[in-house]
Design a protein around this nucleic acid. Structure first.
Lengths: 334, 334
DNA sequence: CTGAAAGCGCTAACAA
DNA sequence: TTGTTAGCGCTTTCAG
C-alpha cells in the first residue's frame, strides 16, 4: 500500500499538521523540512489527491464536453486547453458526446458526480437548462463556440456571421451571383450565424437568397459530400460555393473530384478551417480559418479566473469574448 | 451545499448502511426503496464519487497519455476508447504530451497522484522504466501502438513492418526501383518497424536500401514537407515514394504541389492513414490504413479485463495483440 | 434487511 | 512553528 502522511509523521516523529503544512507550501523549520523530505523519499510517498479533494471540496478537475474529438476544430482547441489547465495543476475529464444532446446531458451528470470544479462545453443544443445544476453549485461554466439560452456564463465565440459575410463578399466581388452554401445543422448556433452572414452579403448585393442554393449538411465529411452533390444537381447555373466547416469542406472536395468538376474554372470554392488541408489541395483552397489557439487561451483564462475568484467574494460580470476569423487566400476562386 | 447520504438517512429515518446498500444495488425493502427515492429526488442528492473513491481506493478513472491529440490517428483511437470506457462507468483523464518524454514522465506522476485505476499510454520513448510505479501499485498499464522495454504489460500494436513491406512491394511490382521513404523519428518504435519493412521488401527484390532515399521526418506535416523536399533534391532519379504516417503524407503532398510534381506521372506515391484525405486528393492516393476502431476496442477490453481481474485472485499472462493494416487503392501509383 | 460505528487520507481550526 | 482533533461523504464490517 502507498504511504500516507501518517506514515511520514510517524517516521519523522512530527505531527500530521506539520507534514500537511509542508506539502502545501507552509513554513516548516529547516531541520524538519529535511527530515520530511527524507521520509518522503524513503517511503515513496505520493499525495493522494482524492483525499485532498474530499476534504477541500475541490478536485482540481475540469470537465470538458465536446461534440466530437475527431473534429479537428475541437481537437485543436482541446489540446491547447488541456495543456494550459494542466500547467496550472488542473486535470481535465473529456467527454465526447458525438453531437448527441442526450449524451451531453448524461455527461453533465457524470461530471457532476465526479465533482469537477468547472465545466467547459461546446454544446450541441440551444438551451443550457441542463447546466443549471452546475451554476447552482457555484461552479463556473464556460461555453465554447456556441451560445446558449437559459444560462448565465462566460463564452468564447468567433464572429461567424462576419466570417461568412466576408467570404461571400469575395465571391460576389469576383463576379459571381449564383453562389451556393453548404451550411451546418439548422439547430446549431454557429451554423445559423454563418448562414445568416451568407444571406446578409447577398442581400447587400441586391441578390435574394435562393433556398435551392443552400444545402444543410451535418458538419461531417459525408454530409458535406452529399450536400455538394445535391447542390450541383439542383443548380446547373451555380458558379461558386461556400462551405462552412472543415469536415464538410473535405467532403465537398471529395465529391467535386468524384464528379470531375474543375476548380476554379467550373466552380469557385471557399472552404473552412484547416490551412494544411487547403494547402494540400489542388488548386490550393481559399478558406476561412478560426483562431483555435486564441479561443483555447481565452477559454482557459476565463475558467482559471472564475476558479480563483470563487475563493474571493465578488464575481465579475459574465463575459462574452468574440474573436475574429482570418481569410487565407488560395487559388480556388476565379 | 449538496445533499449527502446522511441527509437522506435523516430524511427517511433509515440508517446510512441502508442508503449505501440501495445506492450500490443491494437489496432494500420495497417500502424503503420508495422512501429513499423520494428523498433523493427531493434533496437533489448526487453521489459523491470522490468520497466513494477515497473509501474504495478506486477512482473509476483511467489515465491516458498520448503524444498528440491533434494527430488524427491518436484522436480516432482516443475518442473510441473514451466512449467504451465511459459506457462502463470509467472516466478518462487525458494528457497530451506533445511527443515529449519529459512531459510524459510528469504526466505519469500527475496521474499517479490522482490515483487513476489504470493507464493507457502511447509512449514516445523506448523504455518503460518510468511506468514502474504503476505496475508496482498493481495498476494495469496498456500500451498502444508501441512496445516498451523494461516493463511487463499488455499492448496493442499493428503489423507495421508487414504494412510497409506490402506497400513497397506494390511499388516494386509496378516496376519502380528507386523508391524513397519518409520515415518517422528514429527513436520511435513504429517508425523503426516501418523502415525495416521498407528495407526488407527492397532486399527481397535484390535492391540494396540506399540511405539517400530515406528521409527521417518527425511525424508532423512540416516534417513531411521538409523530408519530401530533401528527397527530391537528393534523388533526381527517384520515381516512387512511401510515406509512413498521415501528417507526413499531408506534408509531402503539400510539398509536391509546391514543387509542381505530378502524381503519378512523375512520381508514384503511397501514403498512410486517413482514407478521407486520400479520397480528397487529386489523384486519389493509395494508402496504408490502420484499424483505429479495432485498436481502440482491443485496448479498452484489455484494460477493462485487467480492472476486473484485479478484484479476483490470479492474473492472466500479459498479451500483445497485433492487428493488420489494410491497403486502399487509389490512382497515385503508376 | 437494517442500524451503529469505524475509518479511507487529507486539511484546518485550535491549542500549545 | 508544531501537535491534537475533528471531520469531508462514503463503504463496510458487525450486530441486531
Amino acid at each position: 500500500m502507498a504511504a500516507t502522511i501518517k506514515d511520514i509523521a510517524k517516521q519523522t516523529g512530527l505531527g500530521l499538521a506539520t507534514i500537511s503544512s509542508y506539502l502545501n507550501g507552509g513554513n516548516v523549520r529547516e531541520k524538519n523540512r529535511v527530515k520530511i523530505e527524507a521520509a518522503i523519499e524513503e517511503l515513496h510517498f505520493e499525495v493522494n489527491e482524492v483525499a485532498r479533494g474530499l476534504k477541500t471540496n475541490k478536485t482540481k478537475i475540469i470537465g470538458i464536453i465536446i461534440p466530437e474529438l475527431n473534429n479537428i476544430f475541437c481537437a485543436e482547441i482541446i489540446t491547447e486547453v488541456e495543456d494550459l489547465l494542466r500547467s496550472h495543476g488542473y486535470a481535465t475529464m473529456i467527454c465526447d458526446c458525438r453531437t448527441d444532446e442526450r449524451r451531453e446531458e448524461e455527461a453533465v451528470e457524470f461530471l457532476l458526480h465526479r465533482r469537477v470544479d468547472g465545466l467547459i462545453i461546446m454544446p450541441s443544443g440551444r438551451s443550457g437548462k441542463y447546466l443549471e445544476k452546475f451554476t447552482k453549485a457555484g461552479k463556473p461554466v464556460v461555453l465554447i463556440d456556441r451560445k446558449l439560452k437559459d444560462i448565465d456564463c462566460d463564452s468564447v465565440l468567433v464572429d461567424n456571421e462576419g466570417a461568412a459575410e466576408d467570404a461571400v463578399n469575395r465571391l460576389l466581388k469576383a463576379g459571381h451571383t449564383r453562389i451556393g452554401m453548404i451550411a451546418g445543422p439548422k439547430d446549431i448556433y454557429t451554423a445559423q450565424e454563418r448562414y445568416s452572414g451568407y444571406c446578409k452579403a447577398l442581400e447587400q448585393a441586391g441578390i435574394r437568397p435562393d433556398a435551392k442554393l443552400a444545402a444543410w449538411g451535418n458538419y461531417t465529411i459525408e454530409g458535406g459530400a452529399d450536400a455538394m452533390k445535391e447542390l450541383v444537381r439542383e443548380n446547373p447555373d451555380m458558379t461558386a460555393v461556400f462551405v462552412s466547416n472543415y469536415e464538410m469542406t473535405m467532403g465537398a472536395i471529395i465529391q467535386i473530384n468524384e464528379l470531375g468538376i474543375r476548380i476554379p474554372e467550373e466552380l469557385s470554392f471557399i472552404g473552412f478551417d484547416n490551412v494544411e488541408f487547403a494547402k494540400a489541395s489542388i488548386p490550393k483552397l481559399s478558406i476561412v480559418t478560426q483562431p483555435t489557439k486564441e479561443i483555447a487561451r481565452n477559454v482557459s483564462e476565463l475558467m482559471l479566473g472564475r476558479l480563483e475568484e470563487a475563493e474571493e467574494a465578488e464575481r465579475k460580470e459574465y463575459e462574452t469574448v468574440r474573436l475574429t476569423t482570418s481569410f487565407v487566400e488560395g487559388r480556388s476562386v476565379l
